[in-house]
Computed example of a mutant assay.
Amino acid sequence: MIQSMTGYGKNVIQLASKKITVEIKSLNSKSLDINARVPSSYREKELVMRKMLASSLTRGKVDFSLYVEMTGEETTSQINKVVVKQYMKQLTNIVDTDQAELLKMAIKMPDALKTTREEIDENEFAEILKAVKDALKEINIYRSDEGAVLRADFLARVAIIEARLEEVLDIDSQRIDIVKERLRTAVNELKEKVDENRFEQELIYYLEKYDITEEKVRLQNHLNYFREAINSDDSNGKKLGFITQEIGREINTIGSKSNFAPMQQLVVQMKDELEKIKEQALNVL
């Protein structure tokens, strides 16, 4: 069954002193394009998380975000007392104000805060990976639901193309009669004696050039193949794209051979439905 490349997944976990939020969003893309926003403290583990995303999502423009909110007393930032005192001492020579105001200014200066790098706790990271896994499950469910909507739309539009093809078949004999009559009238207007046998031979040759039997058969086969493809386990957007190209080729050939306004109108309607299918197929995984 087909899946959409559009999806969203989110998971939130509460650790001893941190709240971790994992968020994954995806849109359609020709290949897998992962944009990861990870806190610097977890940067060394980014590759591990990227591999998880790649193995699960396969294709699409993916935005991955890992947010960390400190909820306990622990903090990786501390006031650099020596530096702050130096700033305050220098500011005393510039600004005439009390110590509280000097401290407010000094704490905003470069290097007033120092950050200590903590080693990643493996148990903690295991919990984060579980959160990523759960978010991936959620986004894949979302993609499957969107895929079901696309599938229904594809089937409806394929049915419309088939209905227009049936109408083409219904008026095909009428088209041939009109073409014959048009040629006969043109010959009569020449007011020249015509060899009837030669005329019939030329007429048969002419009509063979405008015969659309092969195109009708191939078009129906391609529509059947498209329907089978969206129901198969190995269905993917690229495969559907190739099939739509073949469908379009047959529709165009029927249009170029029709030489009959009512049939050309049906061809235009088939093209319109096919363009909508092509547009939607770009979002199929």
Rank of each mutant, 00 (worst) to 15 (best):
M1N: 04
N11K: 10
Q14D: 04
Q14M: 05
K18V: 03
K19D: 02
L27G: 14
S29R: 14
K30Q: 10
S31G: 13
L32Q: 12
S40P: 06
E44D: 15
E44K: 13
L47I: 11
V48W: 11
M49Q: 12
A54M: 06
T58G: 00
E69L: 05
T71L: 08
E74H: 12
S77G: 01
N80E: 11
K85R: 14
Q86L: 12
Y87R: 08
K89Q: 14
K104Y: 04
A106W: 10
I107L: 15
E122H: 12
E124F: 09
F125V: 10
E127N: 15
A131G: 07
L136W: 05
N140Y: 00
R143K: 11
A156L: 14
I161W: 04
D172Y: 10
V179Q: 12
V187G: 10
V187C: 14
E192A: 14
Q220E: 06
N224D: 15
A229M: 11
A229H: 01
N231P: 01
K238H: 08
K239C: 03
G241D: 07
F242D: 00
G248D: 03
G248F: 05
E250R: 04
A261C: 01
Q265F: 02
L266R: 02
V268P: 00
M270C: 06
D272K: 03
E275D: 09
I277N: 00
N283D: 01
V284F: 00
L285A: 06
L285H: 00
